[in-house]
Simulated scan of single mutants.
Amino acid sequence: MTALIIVLLIVFGIVLLLLEFLVIPGITVAAIGGILMIAGGIYMSYHHYGNSVGHLTVLSAVVFSGISLVLALKSQTWNKIMLNTEVDSKVQKLDDENITIGDQGICVSRLAPMGRVKLDNIIVEARSTGAYVDEKTKVVVVGIVDKIVIVKPI
């Protein structure tokens, strides 16, 4: 019974570590739990069966971990759960000739502090002068810095 518990602890610990490496980003409960389960299984083997079986348990846990990692990476199963989208959209370039300081418009979305503003029937990204500006508020262009329109509410 003790041998079964030791084997299950090590196997479940390795499964948790594989989940951590391939699915869950960062260091989470899965990694900590996996390490604790493997360490607990190794400790139990030393405690119940002595040094020789404990050494064999450590060796087999390391070999089994390596083989599991190689097989998991080689089988490409992680590609099924991986995000495969590409961003192909482009940022609309601001044409300096169309928008000038003093132009008035209306907020299409809330500026917090960035948002969308409609100026002369052109919708552009804009930044407020600091305060949040609600949707459908009239604004005036107070500046253009590095192709970013700076507006303030009227």
Results as ranks from 00 to 15, higher is better:
residue 61 A to T: 03
residue 92 Q to G: 10
residue 94 L to K: 06
residue 70 V to C: 09
residue 40 G to T: 01
residue 98 N to E: 14
residue 133 V to S: 00
residue 95 D to M: 04
residue 140 V to A: 09
residue 75 S to W: 06
residue 101 I to C: 09
residue 149 V to H: 01
residue 140 V to T: 12
residue 95 D to T: 04
residue 4 L to N: 09
residue 98 N to W: 12
residue 134 D to P: 10
residue 42 I to S: 00
residue 36 L to C: 08
residue 78 W to K: 05
residue 89 S to Y: 13
residue 132 Y to L: 14
residue 51 N to R: 13
residue 11 V to L: 13
residue 44 M to N: 05
residue 57 T to F: 03
residue 153 P to K: 14
residue 120 D to N: 15
residue 126 A to P: 10
residue 20 E to C: 11
residue 3 A to S: 13
residue 140 V to R: 03
residue 145 V to R: 15
residue 101 I to L: 10
residue 66 G to R: 07
residue 82 M to L: 11
residue 96 D to M: 14
residue 53 V to Q: 07
residue 120 D to F: 11
residue 124 V to G: 01
residue 153 P to D: 09
residue 60 S to V: 02
residue 131 A to F: 06
residue 52 S to A: 12
residue 6 I to M: 05
residue 86 E to F: 06
residue 78 W to Q: 10
residue 46 Y to T: 10
residue 2 T to F: 07
residue 121 N to A: 08
residue 152 K to E: 14
residue 82 M to Q: 15
residue 38 I to G: 00
residue 150 I to Y: 12
residue 54 G to E: 01
residue 47 H to G: 00
residue 58 V to L: 09
residue 140 V to E: 12
residue 31 A to K: 01
residue 23 V to Q: 00
residue 104 Q to N: 10
residue 144 I to N: 08
residue 148 I to R: 14
residue 103 D to V: 04
residue 152 K to N: 04
residue 128 S to K: 00
residue 64 F to E: 02
residue 142 V to Y: 05
residue 9 L to C: 12
residue 136 K to H: 12
residue 123 I to E: 08
residue 102 G to R: 04
residue 150 I to C: 08
residue 44 M to T: 05
residue 71 L to V: 15
residue 41 G to C: 02
residue 91 V to E: 13
residue 81 I to L: 08
residue 66 G to D: 09
residue 38 I to T: 03
residue 145 V to N: 15
residue 79 N to C: 07
residue 88 D to M: 10
residue 39 A to M: 10
residue 37 M to K: 02
residue 153 P to I: 11
residue 151 V to D: 04
residue 1 M to G: 06
residue 119 L to Q: 03
residue 22 L to W: 11
residue 45 S to I: 04
residue 79 N to Y: 06
residue 79 N to F: 04
